[in-house]
Nucleic acid binder design. Structure first.
Lengths: 242, 242
DNA sequence: GCATGATTCAAACGTTCGTTTGAATTTTGT
DNA sequence: ACAAAATTCAAACGAACGTTTGAATCATGC
């Protein structure tokens, strides 16, 4: 079993995990070499293959170390909400909180690496690496099912397909935000300094997502919008887009 | 100048661009080798360095070929809306359309590669590669400024910082959707087949985003939610998250 | 029709990658 | 204390990477 004597576990494994987490977040999986990781972790190059077997297994463990507890906390949060509601429908805002708030908890992980992992997770969702695209859905499946049911009860008038899409949009806004994607430097054109702590982001994100989920259905107004869109496409297409 | 005689331009450049676009979308920048690109494009390996100088310049051209026209179409769409409105505030839905609909146009590019580029673009926003993170903001700066002004007039009661964050969330949901991020396989738990064409996605995305942008401000209810969140964090943190 | 420039091509360059090896070192069990 | 197991280490492996080279091939203008 190789159970460590509590006090003096050889932190080589954890140092590698922490270094890999940071570097994968900063540079992506493919662009991060094992030599960068072992240099940052101050361990021997061969330690990665000794402790994890391969680079691919390493990134798998990076995710599993934190994603399991995160999604377990989300489900526990939802359980508590549903217990308290005693069968009554939950407010959409509370369900959204059950997804978003545990992320805040992770970002305050006393080990300190939680915030880094959140950014990594936000990036990983659009990471093309096959190990990521196969590992994440397995972790999320139960979360998706449970929350889709909860939203479905809270929004009984929203058809299943529309609800699925709205949850899709919700995960998009969330992942993007958690990834810290200031790539477009929205921030550059107006000051966001000092208010980018996790809690104030959540205070803004939850109402945004709840309003989107509760939005009136498109059908009534959609026809007109769709036609207008079509016309404008032709109009734009006919000019020389410079 | 090397102006080609119209009919028989050596399509080597375009074949490389198309192959690179697809492969960057499928596997990411760092994980795509020049040998993969030249094999797919059926050109010689050295052709990339001959025509583009380097791998980095190649990806830059991949983006500039399509992103310029796309954002120009967005600005033209907004121009047209504002001309018609004659100084009156625009409906939020129309402004959102001006961002989203030109993407639909790109996805119908007669050259056929537009949809691939949209997915690449959605991924690139969270791509850590420095060339991407430095190139994209330059293309988007004017778009951000113009649309922030438009939203600001349409939503005069929303403070600037809140508006910036809501636009941030909007770009998140958009990028995620354009990237085709079914990584969580929301789709697996409920059928979305047959309705995933670009137009029906937009018909669902625009109301979602517009509702989020118009959401009531958090302040009134936020205090309570924040405290509840804090308590739940401690509660969850104290149990063994499995 | 031939000289000139543009393009393609096979081959090789040096570097870095993930992984393996086998000996040295440390930790553990008795 | 000592054998056995676990871990660390320096060094090297072959493969794949982006890029360069110089000759071969193609197109073009006079």
């Amino acid at each position: 079993m190789s159970l460590r004597s509590s006090a003096s576990l050889p932190d080589t494994r954890d140092r590698i995990l922490a270094a890999a987490e940071t570097l994968f977040m900063e540079r992506g999986y493919a662009a991060t070499s094992l030599r960068m990781i072992t240099a940052k972790a101050r361990v021997n190059l061969a330690a990665v293959n000794y402790h994890f077997g391969s680079k691919e297994s390493l990134i798998r463990e990076v995710f599993e170390r934190r994603l399991g507890p995160l999604n377990a906390a989300r489900l526990a949060y939802l359980d508590r909400l549903e217990d308290k509601a005693q069968g009554r429908a939950l407010p959409v805002e509370r369900i959204v909180e059950a997804i978003v708030v545990p992320a805040l908890q992770v970002s305050r992980d006393p080990l300190g690496g939680g915030a880094v992992f959140l950014r990594l997770l936000g990036r990983a969702i659009s990471e093309p690496a096959s190990y990521v695209r196969e590992t994440l859905p397995a972790h999320y499946r139960e979360v998706i099912i449970r929350f889709k049911d909860a939203f479905s009860r809270a929004l009984p008038h929203v058809p299943e397909q529309d609800l699925a899409w709205r949850m899709h949009f919700m995960f998009g806004a969330m992942s993007y935000t958690m990834a810290g994607n200031d790539a477009l430097q929205l921030i550059g054109s107006c000051q966001l300094d000092g208010v980018d702590d996790a809690e104030s982001i959540i205070r803004r994100l939850v109402p945004f997502l709840a309003a989107g989920l509760k939005a009136p259905l498109a059908d009534s107004q959609a026809r007109r919008g769709s036609i207008a869109a079509r016309k404008s496409i032709n109009a734009v297409g006919s000019r020389k887009a410079a």
